[in-house]
């Protein structure tokens, strides 16, 4: 899909009436298309080519890439740094901001810097505890939490003010996202927590890995009862599991990821477990897209990033749409010729 007002790489689209940003992700969601986002694992290096190589594997299949911010409390290239590289050639990253490592002064500065570079999407997270990462001796900051972070950035954007009340001359035009995990207790509170995030400013939601469809349906039904589904775009998280052993390890060692026995059994019973993991992911995407209020999927394919294109292709959710990537329009023209 080519927008008629498609800009040069690195330039923003014009902001349409009713939109908050000139970003492609918001455009796609508000136009009612099924959006696809993916997780971009940051490199442990200072080489920009490492970032570009990781981004390129998603070319033509995703509407946004999440630049993670020290996920799992492990040290990697910063999300701001990755976004600087990605926006430079026109990619549409989702800049993740975690409250674990920075206080309100640093975070608000990053928001302005990110928006100035062309970041149009920000995902507000509390962040993993430092104890789960490679620097457990680090000082946890947690000056804000995901909720007050959302409210802070919304105030910056809509009122042109810092948290202190000081004026911002050109506010950051960003589409605000938040995370949700319907698969962790207390289950009854989860839809209300999403309601709080929406009240604090969340416009889109990316969820934790979704393997338990009945639990997710229940969550969405409660959210609909609370009137949330018309206020927010929900992108459930999916991803391929490499084997039954990996899935079991993740289930036992990564807090917050719930993988039902049936999924592990299906993996264990397959001849090619990796292929089966991808098939399960495709099946889940197709099931999820039928659920009321689901606006897209967020694919987290850690160490299997190269499989995302095939998964999305085979799931058929893009319906022939080709999301923007550097050089896309020239290629499409060539194909047509």
């Amino acid at each position: 899909m080519i927008f008629p007002d498609e800009p040069n790489p690195g330039e923003m689209l014009p902001i349409l009436p009713g939109h908050t940003t000139g970003g492609r992700l918001e455009r796609v969601l508000r136009a009612g298309h099924f959006a696809v986002t993916s997780e971009l694992a940051p490199p442990d290096s200072a080489n920009p080519e490492d970032v570009y190589a990781r981004a390129r594997v998603f070319d033509g299949y995703v509407d946004g890439m999440n630049a993670t911010d020290g996920s799992g409390a492990n040290c990697h290239m910063s999300s701001v740094g990755m976004c600087a590289l990605l926006t430079r050639i026109g990619y549409a990253p989702v800049m993740q901001v975690s409250c674990r490592d920075k206080n309100r002064i640093a975070i608000q500065g990053d928001v302005l810097g990110g928006a100035a570079m062309g970041v149009t999407n920000i995902l507000c997270l509390s962040g993993d505890g430092v104890q789960s990462g490679d620097h457990p001796e680090a000082k946890p900051v947690f000056d804000l939490d995901s909720m007050s972070l959302l409210e802070t950035i919304r105030t910056m954007r809509d009122k042109s003010e810092f948290l202190s009340g000081r004026k911002i001359t050109d506010p950051p035009k960003v589409f605000l996202g938040a995370a949700a995990n319907p698969f962790a207790p207390p289950y009854d509170f989860r839809p209300h927590r999403m309601a709080k995030k929406i009240a604090a400013g969340a416009q889109f939601i990316q969820t934790q890995y979704c393997f338990d469809i009945p639990r997710f349906k229940e969550f969405m039904a409660r959210s609909r009862d609370l009137g949330l589904l018309e206020k927010v775009f929900v992108l459930p998280g999916v991803g391929p599991m490499a084997s039954a052993r990996t899935a079991t390890w993740i289930r036992n060692n990564v807090p917050g990821i719930h993988i039902p026995d049936a999924v592990i059994k299906r993996l264990a019973g397959a001849q090619d477990q990796k292929k089966e993991g991808q098939q399960i992911c495709i099946d889940l995407i197709q099931e999820l897209r039928e659920i009321e209020g689901v606006s897209g999927v967020h694919v987290m394919a850690y160490r299997q990033e190269e499989s995302v294109a095939e998964i999305i292709d085979r799931s058929g959710v893009l319906e022939g749409r080709v999301p923007w990537y550097p050089g896309r329009d020239q290629e499409l023209q060539k194909e047509r010729a």
Binding site: S126, P185, P186, F189, H192, R193, G256
Partner: peptide
Amino acid sequence: CPKNLRNGPCGGVRLNG
């Protein structure tokens, strides 16, 4: 809360609560 969360549980709560 080790993350000082003031607005609800994080996504990492274990299945046993």
